[in-house]
Design a binder for these strands. Structure first.
Lengths: 225, 225
DNA sequence: CAATTTATTTCGTACTCCTAAATATCTTGC
DNA sequence: GCAAGATATTTAGGAGTACGAAATAAATTG
């Protein structure tokens, strides 16, 4: 079976779609590279900047970057090196665990991230021009694929608190540390943080308990790649 | 506008879909890398092998590879080097134009290509498990995106003759050089070649003449990036 | 047939990836 | 409370991908 065989592609929709996704994937790489050329950034560096821009603070570490880029610590460390050299990022060991190194965008880094955050607009525009019904199906379809790839461990799905299994909105309205609560890390959440990506996100509602268990087990056995 | 902003993703389907495509794209890279690790091939090498396996003979050159991988000649030449070193590919200047170098899979190359042609099966399987209606919408949607990306020059869509604007099936049934005919290169086509990918493919039927003109103009001004 | 164009290669550089090994720094168990 | 083990990261070394620029060689054009 090969989705690269043009013969199959013409009579097996799944093969044709797979090939289309392969092409889109190529184009995304290309878009990243082009944008990077304009600003002296490699694709990996762009991804790192965007990760740091939208990830929950606790996740913004070398390890978090490695997880997000789906690479090793060594590679993530190298990407951080490159960004640090360009003064877009700073490193800083965490006080509570001085092994882990927090990454933070500098002022210039913020700007650079803002300048590249629209890399995929061309793709979004193409999608936005489709009829609503098609967009719905496309959303269902792509997310089904993502879910499957996630179960196989090929991607991590980071989402924001709203919609997360562990999110308790307005759990303690008067707490100065934040009105919301995360039952996963068992800590209060300030409002702004609830709009950031979180590696511990687990969709609420129609989820098999398996997924939740899976997340719970990560708590122990973090990292495995 | 940023499809990376989790806030937008939750209320703009197009952003959510774009992000899903980004994740799938990451996973495709990952799948390629994993498969390559098992066989000592880099992602680019896998793509090159698959290109050589399914492309029409005339396209199997260093330049054709560069076009397909969306890289420069220099990079394509390097990939060819790597594959030649591994004895999976041979180089051979074309007799009719000794500047162009044809690439051909060796026996081992054929086997290697066959061994990796199913890299994306995991994705195809996920898609195949969706309801037919969703698959149709997914096909429409992804192809709309691909079409747009193609117009912007970010991908090339290579397809087989059947369905091509320039294809004349059974134009000369008795011709020993082949029963079919390509009106683009104005030459006869043997049956097996009609099932290979062709860079000059232009969809027949509901196409704007613009696309055809575009293809025609490539004839002259080949290569630009 | 000189000038140009085209297909490819060679260089030099930046970076991405990986593995393996070294360094700290926590965490545990006895 | 401290040796052993686990964790987070870094360093070093190697293959390979990319790029742009310059060099070659072989068509093509005027």
């Amino acid at each position: 079976m090969s989705s690269f065989d043009p013969r199959r592609r013409s009579d097996t929709p799944a093969a044709a779609i797979t090939q289309a996704l392969y092409r889109i994937s190529q184009a995304i790489g290309h878009l990243m590279r082009l944008r990077g050329e304009a600003r002296q950034l490699s694709p990996a560096q762009i991804q790192a900047l965007l990760f740091l821009r939208f990830a929950r603070p606790g996740a913004r570490t070398v390890g978090g970057l490695a997880e997000r880029l789906a690479t090793t610590y060594a590679t993530a460390s190298g990407v951080a090196d490159a960004l640090e050299r360009k003064a877009l990022v700073t490193r800083q060991p965490l006080p509570e665990d001085r092994r882990t190194v927090a990454l933070a965008l500098t002022e210039a880094g913020q700007q650079e991230a803002a300048a590249v955050e629209d890399v995929l607009d061309e793709i979004e525009a193409a999608i936005a021009s489709l009829p609503d019904a098609d967009q719905e199906a496309l959303l269902r379809g792509t997310q089904a694929v993502v879910r499957r790839l996630q179960e196989a461990g090929y991607v991590q799905v980071y989402e924001m608190c709203w919609g997360c299994h562990f999110f308790r909105p307005n759990a303690h309205p008067a707490d100065p540390r934040g009105p919301h609560h995360c039952a996963y890390v068992d800590a209060p959440l300030p409002e702004p943080n609830t709009f950031l990506e979180c590696p511990d996100f687990v969709p609420r509602g129609a989820i098999e308990p398996r997924v939740v268990r899976l997340a719970e087990s990560r708590k122990q056995q973090r990292r495995r790649r």
